[in-house]
Nucleic acid binder design. Sequence first.
DNA 1: GTGGTCTAGACCACT
DNA 2: GTGGTCTAGACCACG
Lengths: 120, 120, 120, 120
Amino acid sequence: MDFNPERPIYLQIIDEIKKRIVRGDLKPSEKLPSQRELATIMSVNPNTVQRAYKELEDAKIAQTLRGQGTFISSTISLKELQNELASEALEEFLTQMSELGLSHGEIKELLVRSLQERTE
Amino acid sequence: MDFNPERPIYLQIIDEIKKRIVRGDLKPSEKLPSQRELATIMSVNPNTVQRAYKELEDAKIAQTLRGQGTFISSTISLKELQNELASEALEEFLTQMSELGLSHGEIKELLVRSLQERTE
Amino acid sequence: MDFNPERPIYLQIIDEIKKRIVRGDLKPSEKLPSQRELATIMSVNPNTVQRAYKELEDAKIAQTLRGQGTFISSTISLKELQNELASEALEEFLTQMSELGLSHGEIKELLVRSLQERTE
Amino acid sequence: MDFNPERPIYLQIIDEIKKRIVRGDLKPSEKLPSQRELATIMSVNPNTVQRAYKELEDAKIAQTLRGQGTFISSTISLKELQNELASEALEEFLTQMSELGLSHGEIKELLVRSLQERTE
DNA sequence: GTGGTCTAGACCACT
DNA sequence: GTGGTCTAGACCACG
């Protein structure tokens, strides 16, 4: 994993884990790599991983058990998390486009055209 | 204007000014508020405004004339600026959605539905 | 039994056992569950129970007889243990309240009101 | 300030600040010492102070302004915070006492006697 | 000068 | 072996 130097590493780790959960690569109740292990894999300091894990815990996405490790929360809903993240992105996108003075029609057209180009 | 504390204020000021240009609220050759004035309006440190203006200059979007103030560049192309900003936003949006495992069809559907809700 | 993740589990086990003794649920000379058994009941690592039992021994509250198990000390004074635990709790409580700037009168009033609500 | 080695320093800093707010020593909107400054005063690492400040921010008790410092939240209600902290302490105390098998009457008597001793 | 992030490395408590 | 805390010290972005 290569990090964007513009954005704090721990936030990028959080985003990555969330996306893996949503895509089903990580399942509820599954154990995350230990802080040290992930730190090694990502060539990052263990404290940085810890920070990411802590925020995931604050967000109720992960849970930590003393001496056993950090786990994806067992009660988490994949669909819900996906909706949440997708809505955030969509909201952000539409706000941006509106502020640029684009109408709904123009936004839709732009998107459709762009998707077509990527499919070809 | 209220700022997102996650993002440098000067960048948010830049974004805001760009959007105003694109929307036509600010016209080419028009004079921007003085740094002090804008700082007062936005309850922000004058240095922050200065930094925003400087970056706008570097991007050839504004020009500073000694003793006269800062002006929107007269040669600026609204359409081009709009395309640029819209493309950036679109790109970012599509990347996010793909990483969430959504297909092109799903993305389109989500957008269309969301636009409809906003129109009603 | 559900544990507070802020506090070591073995301490919480110790507290629980002390309370059961004070309430008479566990009597002097009575045999405690085996470490394995208690570990199973509490869904806890056997080492954790062992540590709790060891600390109870150090505090002269329990005794381990080789091959026979762990027993509540026969010479233990219920009243004394109760006083000790109650004093600790009271001390802690009064310190907290004082630090919040509450007067003796206010503390008393708060307690009385709270007890009344619980009785109704 | 001397710390209890049993409890994380950052939690003790948090508690201390909360108490100062409740007692009126720190007022809403007031600036807290800078992280470095407080770290020096308390002979503690700046990171430790930062951790405490961050948690206060998560709890909406403090607010951080980029480059300006950390401030007590302006919308905070002293009475509410006091009630909250007092209720927590009271709740904890009563739970403890009940678990020791003490009746409401006994609890009250113990408290009254203890307050009297402290007044004399 | 202020907070934010990160590293390196240490020690500890818990399982 | 696992996470939790802490230190020392560095660098950066921001105001």
